[in-house]
Design a binder for these strands. Structure first.
Lengths: 122, 122
DNA sequence: CCGTATCCTACAAGATACTG
DNA sequence: CAGTATCTTGTAGGATACGG
């Protein structure tokens, strides 16, 4: 357990806020890929897989807005745009990585709980 | 940083999955309140504040299905239903709490990044 | 290549009313 | 008290087409 979890509503709202940011469909996938280093738009698109152009743009804009990702445009032809994690983004990767590790280790327990619940209800 | 973050797509999907579960509007608030110990339905409703009856039911059912919360019905009149974190739920609280702590510590940096981005675009 | 614009569908979430 | 049922609205996310 966390040694002194305050669970004050205002704090929980802040948590909820960033969890919703990070909890959308694509953000963690994108941030995870960018953990390797800078990537171009389409490079990222193919690395993630299954993401639409629109959603990749939306996700990257959101991450950029929150200061997790930097966007660098090279005015060449054809144009080239690099995306890279900022320091803040790399720091975010720590707790998110921990949660990810937990998810990886416990996905079986959750899956079993779901099966049990679903068959019990049916 | 996490010592060997594999960022493999399949793992990231698992992360994304539980992040979406935990990243909806009310889950962390509810789990946070339940961190104190067992609570009744309306007790929880008032403790969280602003949540509709329907969403509390939905959230609790989801948490119960995933094995994070247990539901105990007392066949009294009026009826009484207690909700409590399971072991799995309490374990989940650890990485979520860590992320929450990060969110609390860095909310200013994120807010500043947003302001900067928004005024730059405007 | 890297987007924006537009349209569409599914679902999250709230409001309200009713029941064992 | 602790829900379920129904209706409505907002938005997330996808498909497609076009533009710099």
């Amino acid at each position: 357990m966390i040694p002194r979890h305050p669970h004050r509503t205002e704090d929980c709202r802040a948590v909820s806020d960033i969890l919703q940011r990070v909890g959308d469909k694509w953000t963690v996938l994108v941030v995870g890929k960018l953990g390797d280093g800078a990537m171009r738009f389409n490079e990222l698109r193919h690395a993630v897989g299954g993401i639409s152009q629109k959603m990749l743009t939306t996700t990257l804009r959101g991450l950029e807005r929150d200061g997790f990702v930097s966007r660098t445009v090279f005015a060449t032809i054809p144009p080239r745009v690099d995306y890279e994690l900022t320091d803040l983004g790399r720091e975010l990767l720590v707790p998110v990585g921990a949660l990810g590790e937990w998810a990886r280790l416990n996905q079986r327990r959750v899956a079993e709980a779901r099966m049990k619940f679903d068959t019990a209800v049916e």
